[in-house]
Write a protein that binds this DNA or RNA. Sequence first.
DNA 1: TAATATAGTTAGTCCGGGCTAACTTTGCAA
DNA 2: TTGCAAAGTTAGCCCGGACTAACTATATTA
Lengths: 150, 150
Amino acid sequence: MTVHDQLSASLEDYLEAIYNLSSDNRIARAKDIACQLRVARASVTGALRTLAQRELINYKPYGYITLTERGRRLAWKIVRRHQILNYFFAQVLGVETTAAQEAACRTEHTLGPEVTTRMTAFVEFIRRKQADGQDLGQSFQQFWSLLREG
Amino acid sequence: MTVHDQLSASLEDYLEAIYNLSSDNRIARAKDIACQLRVARASVTGALRTLAQRELINYKPYGYITLTERGRRLAWKIVRRHQILNYFFAQVLGVETTAAQEAACRTEHTLGPEVTTRMTAFVEFIRRKQADGQDLGQSFQQFWSLLREG
DNA sequence: TAATATAGTTAGTCCGGGCTAACTTTGCAA
DNA sequence: TTGCAAAGTTAGCCCGGACTAACTATATTA
């Protein structure tokens, strides 16, 4: 079984989309996955088959799509990573929200576990400082403005 | 002409390798590119052709490989991005050097221009603070140790 | 319940970018 | 100067992951 392998960037995206759609509201529909990932419906089918055979989702042709326990755990990690990066890009670097989102989408697949955990801690570190009245994002963004305008 | 297009991650790697090899010492040899990127010699040939037709390198079969002016400028940006990330991973997050290098290699291709410039500024910002006796990397790494050990 | 719209799948194609095997060119050493 | 090893190229293959077109299943609603 190829069950333990790393997922490709593309498969991570599918898994993440399924996670988001199924928690957002109801059921993850292939149509919506396609739409969210801006991909043809036909491409979704292939990805679903692969995810199913890696035992990350439960999937039968024309049936409902649900995450397995393994799938849910993995998806959660992926989503988490995404959020961390997004926070860093948006709140610390001050990148505009949709650009930050897009960057996070692209970058999230390349961080190894080492960098991910440290990055997570770093964001936590920054949040604490902020709670202590020391807003790093803000003071960087001041610096940034000076660079730009001044 | 496809001359203005974005390069794929893989082509960026080739360009970067050529840049490094030709500044490191002498001439960028296909053999060394292959070795550095851990790729078969045959794969290099294809990449060289593509880079040549995008006017980023001067290349004739069996000839020397040199960067064009455009190629050099672009390669420089790529190398720069790599260094910035590497600094951030190693000096700020405290990731061990070779792991930081590897992460930088994977991540560098996904940062858009917006994030890249801000990231560059962020690293500069941190350096300044460090010069002022406020070492963010160090204080984060203290925090990190507490998380781990404490 | 039958007709049709919508969702999903299949088949077949393409493209990037790897690979190996076999061939050609180049360059060094006898 | 020739003769062989090393470097480079070509041809042909594979794989992942997109696509379109055409088909099938499902759902809606008249």
